[in-house]
Design a binder for these strands. Structure first.
Lengths: 233, 233
DNA sequence: AAGTGGTCTAGACCACGGC
DNA sequence: CCGTGGTCTAGACCACTTC
């Protein structure tokens, strides 16, 4: 029996969430098939499909051909983090952004970096060390390696005015990458740059970016003391 | 002119990514409108829309009515993190999961928690402290507050066999929440529980979950030394 | 006012996966 | 085999944004 008319996929998503929420449909339960929901809501199957697909992508539902759609037992809390340009991140919290290049030179990467960037031989690559500031206080250390053999244009940049961060976004197409987040006791050097005590816990983000099988860049961002990465769900 | 036939949204997404990658369309550029792409690819506008919508959700494109679709200036900025049940997280790395309840009692929350959970008066709420282990070694400390006034069933649970983490997923519907990630110098208590040195940097995830305006639970997860949260893009 | 994306429809065919 | 979700189509109308 047709109960109500909901002709938008957002409305259907809300209704489905509401039924999960009020435990009409409990974790693990099979919910009606698309056709039946379409009839019940007085809309087309396409619209129901859109709503259920979004919920499945969010981890709320699990769908399988033939067997149907279930309320997920394990709504894998997915948090989407926005990782903006550091400049934008600083501006967003209402502070004045500043940038200072500390070092730029071609040198032999340590083994750790060589492994991550899949560089075998004893070739030199571009190393950049820079400090991003917020209201003239240290905000993030950018410790970056760029494979200028993969990205020859990078060798012509001095990175004095603009950070490698910004230049790469506009000029380095990539195919994929990895990110890792961790907590580190700051080294003496980093502590000095950030004006904190050596050993203080700091938040680090490490990113590796690839062009097919070639590593373009590896960057380690070390944030100011007390930095928190936030998101909502 | 119709150049080629691509009749799946995945194919179109791949083609668009390829053109961004080979710099046919550069960051900031306007790309053709849906109708034109549909004609070029020999498919319906609906299919093009699906492909472009997915790319916009991924942060690769930016779309606006009337003005059209642009290649995002800032594409590498969204990372989706899956935050699974701790049990699943441990199993996934091929280790044996264990759980041990350390404390469970009703008590007055500290001001910090009261603010986060929007609790005003001097009421007692449920506090849980537990340790999750991997191959019998400390993995995560779960330090949780549950508002049993919002979730009366929680008061009947002893959380001896199964963690609050697991029970809540199946029994506590929520409307929204917040997550924050940070780096902390471990307290003496936590260092003891994790068998590490006091002051060692540890990774913390704090989550607040709400049912409309009511806070259901606040949890602080403190991970083993050296823990890394990983994702790819 | 007009251009562009956002969404809905009704119907169709296909792909996967239980049986 | 056959039920269910996955996707595509052609056309339609709407909503937002810029002019």
């Amino acid at each position: 029996m047709r109960l109500k008319t909901i002709n938008s996929w957002l409305g259907i998503r809300a209704e489905v969430l509401s039924r999960i929420y009020d435990r009409t449909w409990k974790p693990g339960d099979l919910i009606p098939k698309e056709i039946d929901l379409a009839f019940e809501f007085g809309c087309s199957r396409t619209t129901v499909n859109r709503a259920l697909r979004e919920l499945a992508e969010a981890g709320t539902l699990e769908r399988r051909r033939k067997s149907g759609t279930r309320v997920s037992l394990n709504p894998a809390n997915k948090a989407t983090l926005k990782i903006p340009l550091i400049k934008n991140e600083v501006n967003k919290i209402g502070k004045t952004y500043g940038y200072k290049l500390i070092q730029r030179k071609l040198c032999l990467p340590p083994d750790k970096i060589k492994n991550k960037m899949r560089i075998n031989s004893g070739i030199k690559i571009l190393h950049i060390l820079a400090l991003h500031t917020a209201n003239d206080l240290p905000f993030v250390i950018e410790d970056r390696w760029i494979n200028q053999h993969v990205l020859p244009e990078s060798e012509k940049q001095n990175f004095k005015e603009h950070s490698a961060n910004e230049w790469l976004v506009l000029n380095a197409p990539y195919t994929h990458g990895t990110i890792s987040f961790s907590a580190i006791n700051s080294s003496a050097e980093n502590a000095h740059l950030l004006s904190i005590k050596s050993g203080a816990a700091v938040f680090e983000i490490e990113r590796n970016t690839f062009d097919k099988e070639n590593a373009i860049t590896n960057v380690c961002l070390t944030y100011e003391r007390g930095y928190r990465m936030l998101t909502t769900f």
